[in-house]
């Protein structure tokens, strides 16, 4: 109770400060809107929590706990989106026995909104992924995988636009190069395109053509490859694009204690986040919006 009280108070203070600032500049009123983005990546079929004997992750993780946490966050802010950055499949017998059915059903019960596709999601072949689609009440986005000559055609869109509290949120997906990582018999005629060019295209479409207020890249290309810094990664996508506000990543199982702030191609801030793997953590990024004339986004303060 005390904690909630504190949160309310601090939010009120922020609103007051913003109104004051705007009042001097533009004499127009401002209403603060808050969009909460929750995210997971590389859960790898980890449905049950790790046991007390586990050497590394004892008593951590578990979908039933994640569910109650997400529920309490949604009660605090109904304008919450829940996203997953791929590699939903493979890692426990739940996948071996049920082929991903339980993973998708649980994600639907947790009300995931959008997910992208990781390399392990092809582990039972593209047909194995397709077979589980009826269990998913959320949508898949991937802008750089062309599925037109596969069974997944029409089941994956380049991006998804969601409007919450009048805020238009554009989410596009990026997948990793499959050749050399996944057997061709598994991904079949899925065509991979360069994530950088696609991300430049997508951010332009979402920001300029679709006038999104918030642009999110849901990526499974990996955070950053220290020993191969030119390899396409979330950090490199952040640097080479503009108009992306947040990159939610996966694949490299990178445990970031807090989101990384990177500069984009025009020197603006982009947040890059990834929460390790196996459902050990939930990422949470809150975006506060002000409506006001002639005020640019450059003033956004980032608290991480």
């Amino acid at each position: 109770m005390k904690r909630r009280h504190f949160i309310q108070k601090s939010t009120a203070a922020t609103v007051l400060a913003s109104v004051g600032g705007l009042g001097l500049q533009s004499f127009s009123p401002a209403k603060t809107k808050k969009i909460t983005i929750l995210h997971t990546n590389d859960v790898h079929s980890h449905i049950d929590p790790f046991g007390p004997e586990d050497g590394r992750n004892a008593n951590k993780g578990g979908v039933a706990r994640r569910a109650s946490l997400i529920e309490s966050i949604r009660q605090e802010n109904p304008n919450t989106l829940l996203l997953d950055a791929g590699d939903i499949f493979q890692g426990t017998p739940y996948f071996n026995y049920y082929g991903g059915e339980l993973e998708f059903k649980l994600m639907s019960m947790l009300k995931y909104d959008v997910a992208t596709i990781g390399n392990h999601d092809f582990d039972n072949g593209i047909d194995g992924l397709y077979a589980q689609i009826p269990h998913a009440k959320f949508e898949f986005v991937s802008a750089n995988y062309d599925f037109s000559n596969t069974v997944m055609d029409t089941h994956v869109n380049p991006y998804k636009i969601i409007v919450r509290d009048g805020i238009k949120i554009g989410i596009f997906g990026l997948g990793i190069q499959l050749d050399g990582l996944v057997n061709k018999d598994m991904y079949k005629e899925t065509v991979y395109h360069d994530p950088i060019e696609i991300a430049q295209d997508m951010s332009r479409i979402l920001k300029e053509e679709q006038s999104c207020d918030l642009v999110i890249c849901l990526s499974h290309i990996g955070y950053y490859y220290k020993n191969n810094p030119d390899k396409v990664s979330d950090i490199n996508v952040a640097r080479a694009t503009k108009d992306i506000d947040l990159i939610i990543g996966g694949h490299t199982h990178t445990f970031l204690p807090k989101p990384t702030i990177e500069k984009n191609s025009i020197g603006k801030n982009v947040l890059v986040n990834q929460v390790g793997c196996f459902g050990l953590y939930l990422g949470k990024v809150d975006f506060y919006f002000e409506s006001g004339k002639g005020v640019s986004a450059e003033g956004a303060s980032i608290i991480v």
Binding site: L214, P259, A297
Partner: peptide, 25 residues
Amino acid sequence: SCASTHISKIEGKRIDINDSLATSQ
């Protein structure tokens, strides 16, 4: 007159999933 919306503040953190959380029955 003030249709333009912009991000004024961003807060990011990660939350541990552990046995301190309630289990959804």
